[in-house]
């Protein structure tokens, strides 16, 4: 008991020291939280790998899916400055559009699906990407013209999220759908890790797309303009960058990445109309953890959040996975709102 009191006392001193540090030396606090969080996440990862490697592997698979969604979300958030609450439902639309376009039959090597899936993914990417551009012209563009605040955009995105979900429900109904039925055995890897070929496909697709996004953002003119606009909209405008053009590309990229993320989620589990909305909190947690506007941040955040969610299931009810994402989000907002990679404000 006495030990407990002493420990609580120490914890309180630590907390007061931190609060003092934040007030007196914000620069030091910032550096300390930056390093501290990296150390914390690193230590957590090592711990997780030792305790349950299988959960970490599942975390990485889901993290890949969340990363694809979060990169699009962070680009939209950084460039248009508003929280797109429809991003999860854009993923869900992608999954269902691929379901619509998917011609089953055949299989590529050990995968559960054939080339029809590649085609379906492309159809989903193009339709969600182009669809996002069209919706921008119909909804967000008029709001921009009117000079609405960011919150109005966020509410509009929520209205769109509900609309998308309703449309999918009208067409397919609430019952789960699945791309390919049947039992797909997992491979046994060293250290007792089991992974299905489809899950390797998920990770590989994600790696490929993230590489493509990096080439786009760091090597092409429009990609650099996207980063520039995310940094400083006003300066981008006075430099002669056309915001409308950059916004169009942002939706195209963000929308198509969301579509792939949705399809991959469908491959990993199944398709339900609320699959996207239930990923919304992990998506935002990943985005804010990494720092809004930062693609590296979205990737790191997605992995941290997803691995933490999976590993947490060894102690707590899986029903609380959403709460794990939420608690990480709140902790980050309390300690370091700009995230791991975000800009100082």
């Amino acid at each position: 008991m006495a030990e407990l009191v002493a420990r609580a006392g120490k914890a309180r001193t630590l907390l007061t020291t931190l609060v003092m540090l934040r007030r007196e030396r914000p620069d030091l606090f910032d550096a300390a939280t930056g390093i501290g969080l990296w150390v914390l996440f690193g230590a957590f990862l090592i711990f997780a790998v030792i305790t349950d490697l299988q959960l970490v592997v599942v975390g990485i698979i889901l993290g890949s899916i969340v990363a694809l969604g979060a990169i699009g979300l962070t680009l939209v958030y950084g460039i248009m400055k508003f929280a797109n609450f429809a991003h999860g439902d854009m993923m869900m639309c992608g999954a269902y559009l691929a379901f619509f376009a998917f011609i089953s039959g055949g299989s590529i090597g050990p995968l559960s699906f054939g080339y029809g899936m590649i085609l379906a993914i492309l159809v989903a990417m193009i339709s969600v990407g182009v669809g996002s551009v069209v919706i921008d012209r119909l909804v967000y563009h008029p709001l921009r013209q009117r000079g609405s605040g960011v919150v109005v955009f966020a509410i509009a995105s929520l209205g769109l999220a509900i609309t998308f979900r309703a449309l999918i429900l009208l067409w397919w109904g609430p019952q789960p759908q699945i791309y390919v039925t049947g039992i797909h055995p997992a491979w046994d890897l060293p250290f007792g890790v089991k992974i299905k070929p489809d899950q390797i496909f998920i990770i590989a697709t994600t790696l490929f797309l993230i590489a493509a996004v990096y080439v786009l953002l760091f090597r092409t003119r429009i990609g650099k303009a996207m980063r520039a606009m995310s940094d400083n909209l006003e300066l981008a405008r006075v430099s002669g960058i056309n915001p409308d053009q950059v916004i169009m590309w942002t939706w195209l990229i963000g929308g198509s990445l969301a579509a792939v993320a949705g399809v991959l989620l469908g491959i990993q589990s199944q398709l339900t109309p609320d699959m996207g909305f239930s990923l919304l909190l992990p998506l935002f947690a990943a985005t804010i953890l990494g720092g809004i506007g930062s693609p590296h941040g979205a990737l790191t955040g997605a992995m941290v959040v997803s691995i933490a969610q999976q590993v947490s299931t060894s102690w707590i009810d899986p029903g609380y996975k959403v709460a794990v994402a939420f608690i990480l989000l709140i902790l980050m907002l309390a300690v370091r709102p700009r995230g791991l990679f975000g800009m100082k404000t």
Binding site: K224, A225, N232, L235, S239, S294
Partner: peptide, 15 residues
């Protein structure tokens, strides 16, 4: 543009 390199800043000037 703080997250862009010096050279990228100039490229944006020439957008």
């Amino acid at each position: 543009f703080p997250t862009l390199t010096v050279q990228e800043n100039l490229e944006m000037g020439a957008f």
